[in-house]
Design a protein around this nucleic acid. Structure first.
Length: 429
RNA sequence: GGAGGGAUGGCUGAGUGGUCGAAAGCACCGGUCUUGAAAACCGGCGUGCCGAGAGGCACCCAGGGUUCGAAUCCCUGUCCCUCCGCCA
């Protein structure tokens, strides 16, 4: 959520910044609502103050009237009038506030100044490239073909069990999938200073509002048929960031959490896109990095966090590049995002494997997550960040494709072997 | 699933429908005293919103209601605790 005070004080620069992501903000309408809202507040408060003062004097007045044998009814009637006036004013105020909040909740975050202009993925700007794509002296297979023998990767069975966009994995592939989770968690805990946290995979609506999936992106979510309004998490970002919803954080910042969770996405509107293989699934695993930091630290924190995700690719010897998302490709809540893309030999291009974002105070304002700034002693909004470190399924398929051998077997990257009982290769034939 | 009890400021814990944003203690911050510290004493010590300011308004789990007036009464929901049942 944007700071209404900022929209009020510099409406043009806000509108201009949002234009960079292709959003046309109705500043005029917003400011009008805001003005009406504040008028309504003042009116309500004035009437309430009157009512309160009158009520306070009632005790004595009633006693006095009784002593003199007077009728109390007129006194009550005056009070009732005051009550009704205040009540109506309050209802009006609530109605205006509701409309204002509805609008505010649908406005995306303001992109950083440094975010490049652009409309789509094609306009993202590459900032670094690491590792050399391998040259193959045989015909490259994609992960679907590599995983087919022995049903190591079995999409037909998954379709029977559930439908399209699900996977069944067996044997060495399933084992590597599990190994990747352990490997990534260990690296982030031991080398990057994150605390592991385990969270629910089912969340309520408040949590989804907090991080920004709702109200606008309901269609991307799986909702449980349940009167409690539960949703399956689309990413660990939701439960992990919501850990501090409504809190004033007591301890020191930064707080760094790493969490492994499954993620569920209905992928509405993606029909015909990446239908083959593991790239786009309704269910996938992810190791997620989440940070809560002091505002002045968030720029550096994003660089750090992105580096932590990149470190995994380097340890796994996977070629990748990192891009800055342009305004048009930026997610709803993000002010700045780096996508890390891994090289896929079968597609001869880089594909997203991690997305690392700085949300600044956008999520914190929705979440009401604050910390006590030691310099001012006052509660202030924190900055939140997160990034995949990494998406497990996509890492798995990247390893399969990049480490494939002519016989169809897959060499296990050195860093992963301790997590797979020391074996050097899986699959094959 | 059944029966009962509860939710008050960082913590503990009072609170009769009116003068309660709320006693008291602890913790914390500042001061006096002290060579220093402790003790003692004095003062301060929640959050948000409106307002140029003075000040005002709201918040005692959440949302409704009764009342001139609600932390206190009523309804609904959430969460926690105890007991029974079931269960990985």
């Amino acid at each position: 959520m944007l700071d209404l005070k900022r929209i009020r004080s510099e409406p043009d620069s806000v509108a201009q910044a949002l234009a960079k992501r292709g959003v046309n903000l109705d500043v005029q309408g917003l400011l009008e609502l805001d003005a009406r809202h504040r008028e309504a507040i003042e009116k309500t408060q004035r009437l309430l103050a009157e009512r309160n003062a009158y009520s306070k004097s009632m005790g004595k007045a009633v006693a006095q009237a009784k002593k003199e044998g007077q009728d109390i009814e007129p006194l009550k009637r005056k009070g009732e009038e005051l009550k009704n006036a205040a009540h109506h004013a309050h209802e009006e105020e609530s109605a205006v506030r509701e409309r204002l909040e509805e609008r505010l909740l649908e406005i995306p975050n303001i992109p950083d100044e440094a975010v490049p202009a652009g409309e789509s993925e094609a306009d993202n700007v590459e900032i670094r490239r690491r590792g050399e794509p391998r040259r193959f002296d045989f015909d490259v297979r994609d992960h679907v073909d590599l995983g087919a023998p022995g049903g190591l990767m079995d999409f037909e069975t998954a379709t029977k069990l559930s439908g399209s966009r699900f996977a069944v994995m067996r044997g060495g592939v399933a084992r590597m999938h599990r190994a990747l989770i352990q490997f990534m968690l260990d690296v982030h805990i031991n080398e990057h200073g994150y605390d592991e946290i385990y969270v629910p995979f089912v969340v309520n609506r408040d949590s989804l509002y907090g991080t920004g999936q709702l109200p606008k992106f309901e269609a991307d979510l799986f909702r449980l048929e349940d009167e409690r309004n539960f949703y399956l998490i689309p990413t660990a970002e939701v439960p992990v960031t919501n850990v501090y919803r409504g809190d004033i954080i007591d301890g020191e910042l930064p707080i760094r959490y790493v969490s492994h969770t499954p993620c569920f996405r209905s992928e509405a509107g993606s029909y015909g896109k990446d239908t083959r293989g593991l790239i786009r699934q309704h269910q996938f695993e992810k190791v997620e990095l989440v940070q809560f930091v002091a505002p002045e630290e968030s720029d550096r924190a994003l660089e750090d966090l992105t580096g932590h995700a990149e470190a995994i690719l380097e340890k796994l010897e996977l070629p990748y590049r990192t891009v800055v998302l342009c305004g048009g490709d930026l997610g709803f809540s993000a002010a700045r995002t780096y996508d890390i893309e891994v090289w896929l030999p079968s597609q001869e291009r880089y594909r997203e494997i991690s997305s690392c974002s700085n949300f600044r105070d956008f999520q914190a304002r929705r979440l009401k997550t604050r910390w006590r700034n030691p310099e001012t002693g006052k509660p202030e909004l924190v900055h939140t960040l997160n990034g995949s470190g990494l998406a497990i399924g996509r890492t798995l398929l990247a390893i399969m494709e990049n480490f494939q051998q002519a016989d169809g077997s897959i060499t296990v990257p050195g860093a992963l072997r301790p997590y797979m009982g020391g074996i050097a290769s899986i699959g094959g034939q």
